[in-house]
Amino acid sequence: MKIMTCPINGPRPVSEFFYWGALREMPNPDTASDDEWAAYVFNKSGAPGVKKEWWCHTASNTWFIAERDTEKDLVLRTYLYGEGE
């Protein structure tokens, strides 16, 4: 099975992880329009390509970001939240 590399624990089989979903910026909940807010809550991009996603290594409860090319099924890189740049 696929290998996912936790930034702290190293490469592990993907069954050791939990996939949360896409990393997205929350619009300002006080100023966003109803439509903008609904799009943020419910709409997610299904198009193949490079995604930034939240993943968790469950045994150690380590949350991190993975950049994944869903078209080529490649994990490009993983890093702790905030350390991506």
Binding site: N9, R12, S15, E16, H57, T58, A59, S60
Partner: peptide
């Protein structure tokens, strides 16, 4: 090593 053994976090 923090991992899963026989389905349990260890």
């Amino acid at each position: 090593v923090l991992t899963s053994m026989v389905g349990v976090g260890v």
